[in-house]
Nucleic acid binder design. Structure first.
Length: 341
DNA sequence: ACATTCGCATGTATA
DNA sequence: GTATACATGCGAATG
């Protein structure tokens, strides 16, 4: 149930989006010039995703992403924030602690991300277990599958958090020190009947007065932001097979075991990860295969992520974890060669 | 019948 | 030489 010019099916759209974002990253001073507080339902003022326009036209898109039905938002800021990341050399491996000093634009992005996270930090009781051995793409990360559409619409409204003060505190991204935080993970065997729960949650949220929603969201944002630390838990230079059409990305065993939730063979986890750049919540299936005496850790249903970001062999996949709410954030980093094109 | 997905096997690089 | 991690290919299963 894609609702934006999403990562599936309308290649030109998301290619364009990506290129626009990329351009903003390379020229943050020009940016995309999308007003941060554009009015609800206003047409997109730039080449960003067109949630409103695509909400109807591409309802069948976006097999494993969760784009948001929402007014245009400040991709300029996100792109610039991405630039802030890119401007600093990342460590070659996750074994090297590092910290990012982020610009205000990143703070704006984080406001968004954390605000968004408020909505789905709690789950309703599953109505019925979803078979995990094979999750059809139509359920993988669909916006409606977890009812995110309603939440994100709520939390991303242009008036939401209008009273937020600019974030000046720098946010650090560092190596994990422990893995005790429970990220947004749905053990697939416990996953709810997403079609039903979506309706339930939409009702729950939509009945809240907007002002109250805004207030609560802002409060949560403030609290989360005060302790916002982003840990790089995994970096992977993508290979040809990773970016092939298999939709699978082999994860480094050490990082996967250290930073991602523990797995039991035959019991994959559904990992939900916010896209660092795009307004998408990706939903991956995380599992491992026995391999000789070892294991191979796999991130499945990653094809759309790869496509959306135009990732190629040599690019880097980075997974962050917000240590406080335990949320995952995923980013595809283009290699320098490509970003300088 | 075909395309896609899944699970595993095998080859290669590295420690 | 051995063990491990990972890249990739392939056949079976599935839709």
């Amino acid at each position: 149930m894609g609702q934006m010019g999403g990562p599936d099916g309308d290649g030109p759209h998301h290619q364009y989006h990506y290129q626009a974002l990329l351009a903003a990253v390379q020229n943050p001073s020009q940016g995309l010039h999308v007003p941060l507080h554009a009015g609800a339902g206003a047409p997109a003022a730039g080449p960003g995703p067109r949630p409103g326009a695509d909400a109807d036209a591409s309802s069948t898109h976006n097999a494993n992403a969760t784009p948001h039905s929402q007014p245009p938002r400040a991709f300029t800021d996100w792109s610039a924030s991405n630039s802030a990341f890119a401007a600093q050399p990342a460590p070659a491996t996750t074994n090297t602690p590092f910290h990012y000093n982020l610009s205000q634009s990143y703070a704006l992005w984080t406001h968004y991300m954390l605000n968004k996270n408020v909505s789905y930090s709690t789950y309703s009781t599953p109505h019925e277990p979803l078979r995990h051995t094979h999750i059809p793409d139509k359920y993988s990360g669909c916006a409606f599958s977890l009812g995110f559409d309603s939440f994100t619409t709520m939390s991303l409204g242009p008036n939401i958090c209008a009273n937020m003060t600019p974030m000046e505190r720098s946010i650090s991204a560092k190596e994990p020190e422990n893995s005790e935080d429970l990220p947004t993970v749905v053990r697939s065997s416990d996953e709810m009947d997403t079609r039903n729960s979506g309706d339930v949650r939409r009702d729950t949220v939509d009945t809240l007065p907007e002002s109250k929603q805004s207030h609560e969201s802002c409060a949560s944002v403030s609290n989360k932001f005060d302790s916002g630390e982003y840990q790089v838990i995994l970096r992977k230079e993508l290979t040809k097979s990773d970016v092939a059409n298999s939709g699978r990305i082999v994860l480094p065993k050490k990082d996967a075991e250290a930073g991602l939730p523990p797995l039991v063979q035959g019991d994959p986890l559904i990992l939900q990860m916010d896209d660092m750049v795009l307004p998408i919540i990706w939903k991956f299936k995380y599992r491992f295969w026995p391999n000789n005496k070892s294991r191979m850790y796999i991130l499945e249903a990653a094809g759309e992520f790869v496509k959306t970001h135009g990732l190629q062999a040599g690019d880097t996949l980075i997974i962050y974890k917000n240590s406080v709410p335990g949320k995952f954030i995923i980013r595809g980093e283009k290699s320098i060669q490509q970003t300088n094109l």
